[in-house]
Every structure is written in structure tokens, then in C-alpha cells.
Amino acid sequence: MNSIPLPEQQSPGPGPAASPGPGPAASSGLKELRCLLGHIRYENLAAGLSGGVISTLVLHPLDLVKIRFAVSDGLQMRPQYDGVLHCIRTIWQLEGVRGLYQGVTPNIWGAGATWGLYFLFYNAIKSYCQEGRESELGALQHLLSAAEAGILTLCLTNPVWVTKTRLVLQYSDRKQYRGMMDAMLKIYQHEGVAGLYRGFVPGLLGTSQAALQFMTYEALKRNSNEYKKLPSDALLSPWEYIVMAAVSKIIAVATTYPYQVVRARLQDQHNSYSGLADVLSRTWSNEGAFGFYKGMVPNLVRVLPACCITFLVYENVSRLLLGQYN
């Protein structure tokens, strides 16, 4: 995979003869950066945003349940649930529909922005790497392209995810935030920028999940089209997109889920950890290996349909916007 070089700083030479203009390395770096930016297609941003927003509106209650299970360490005075259905029924009885959609605003912002930016960066990096190559990108190139896209996206969206987690973990008997902007402002006032970037390190590890998912998804699409003797970018049927999205997501989640538990606990306002090592140590000591997989069942129940909806909407909307329908 081609790397994305950054402009290098040139040391000015002595005396008035030194040239004030950029050196050859800096010029080359700027040229490469402009080339990368030339591959950006805002249709991918719009299509990814559409998929993220639609899937979030449909499935937010399951996301809320997943997070509440993930932080359930047994040591806090917080509601206890016997299972997914019991959790949903309890929240419904205590808080109604509003309770099930607590934190939905930052979730929509976060999911829309994350999927939109992810598809924008991923396709731009992938196109940049493909430029000048006669053969298609391999699995490693897809993996690295997706990882780079994930890191760029996380840098921009982590504050939204912290805010969403805090709102989701507000229980009916003790609420401290009135909404998304109030939560974000209070987090910044009391914890600074560091508070808005809680869970960033495990979030970086989480980019490996998306990278694995995209690598598997691309491989499944390529193999399917090769088997049918079609171009690699040929439009597939809705069911093919759904199956491929589901299979790729299952593989990625099974491999990387523990980071989500760690991240949620770092962002939980009801508990205090000194850092990543403290979360790992206390979770292992108090709950064993099982503690790192809490909430995985509701997570799978949520992410599989969410992933299928997102990818199906993305593939069709992007092709519609780019005029690639047959």
C-alpha cells in the first residue's frame, strides 16, 4: 500500500542565498496530498451518513441495552437485568419510549458522522492506493486502508461517542445531563479535552474491528463476482450485500469485542478508573475473562441488522449518487 506522506520541514540554509520556497521533499509531499484529496467523493460521505442514521434510528434501544450490560460490573448501585428482554421491559416500564431512546441524538450524530467519514476516507485512500496499479488491491491493502480511515474518523468523532455513553448511562433516579450539548459542555468544563477523549486508546484498538470487517467484506464481494465472472465492482443483489455484511461483522466482532467493554467502562461516569491498565486489571480480577464479553449478545443482536442496513443503504445510495446503476 502507498503511504500518505506528510510535508517535511526544510532547514533554511545560511545567509541570504537560502531559498524561502518549499524544498523538493515538501513539494512532493504536497503533491501527494493533493492527489489523495482528488480521490475524495462526497457521494460516499452522503451514502455512509444515510446508512448510519437509518440503522441508528431503527436499532438505538439495543445499543442502549448493550452499553448498560457492558458496564454492569456488579460493584455499583445500578439497575440489574436478567437478560435483554428484561432490560428492555424494565426501561419501558420506568421511563417509557423516551427511556429506550435516551442518548439517541449523539448516537445519530456519531453513527452518521462515523459511517459517512469512514466511507469517505476509506474510498479515497483505497482509490489513491489503486492509482497506477494494474492489479486489484489485495487483502492487506484493504486492511490498511480501512485502519487508516478508522483512525482519522475516531479522531474527529470520539467526543460524540463519550457524550452518547454518558447519556445512555443516565438512570431514571439520577440524571445530570439535559441533552447532548449540555453533556458535552459539562464534560469539557469538569474534565477538559481529556474527558471528551476518554476511551480513545481502546477506540484505536477498535479500528481493527472495522478494518477486519472491511477486509472480509471486500474479499467476499470480489470472490462472489469472480465466481459469477462479473467485474469486481459489479452491483450485487440486496440479499448478497446483507449476507456478506453479516458474515464480515460476525468475524470482526468475535475477534475484537473486549475493547468495547473496556472503552465503555473508561467512559462511564459512575465509576473511576486510572487508565486502561486499571480497567483491564480490575475487570479480570473481579469478573474473569467473561467480564470482557459482557453485552456481546445484545451487541450482536444490534450490530448485525445495523451493519446489514448500513451497508445495503450505502451501496445503493452511493451508486445512485455516483450514477453507477446499470
Rank of each mutant, 00 (worst) to 15 (best):
R198W: 03
V262E: 03
V201T: 11
R68E: 02
Y325D: 09
Q324G: 04
T255V: 15
V53R: 04
K126M: 00
Q141K: 06
A149V: 06
R68F: 08
Y227F: 11
D63I: 15
E95C: 02
S55A: 15
I4E: 03
S19I: 13
A264N: 09
G83Y: 06
L33T: 07
P258C: 07
G110M: 06
A234D: 07
V301K: 02
R41Y: 05
E131P: 02
A245M: 02
F214W: 02
G150I: 06
A245H: 01
K229Y: 08
I250C: 13
S224G: 15
Q176H: 14
A26S: 03
G150P: 07
L75V: 12
E240A: 05
V162N: 02
L220M: 14
E148A: 13
T90G: 00
D173P: 01
G23K: 04
V65W: 02
N107D: 11
G21N: 07
S55C: 12
T310S: 12
A211T: 02
V97M: 09
G110Y: 02
L220C: 10
L57E: 05
Y217M: 06
A111S: 14
A124E: 03
Y293S: 08
L169E: 03
G112V: 10
L212A: 01
A47L: 10
G13I: 03
K249M: 15
V313D: 01
S55P: 05
R319L: 04
L212T: 04
R166I: 00
Y197A: 06
L94I: 06
Y171E: 12
R166V: 00
A277S: 15
R166H: 09
M181S: 09
N286T: 12
P298A: 10
H39K: 11
R166M: 01
N44E: 11
N158I: 12
G83I: 09
V104Q: 07
E43A: 14
P20H: 11
Q269A: 10
L320F: 15
G323M: 02
L185R: 15
Y293F: 15
C155M: 15
V97A: 08
C35V: 06
R222W: 12
I40Q: 14
H39F: 14
V247T: 12
F69D: 01
L276T: 06
T165Q: 12
S50D: 12
V253C: 12
E8K: 10
S145H: 04
Q324N: 12
N271C: 13
Q102F: 07
N107W: 08
G288Q: 09
N286H: 15
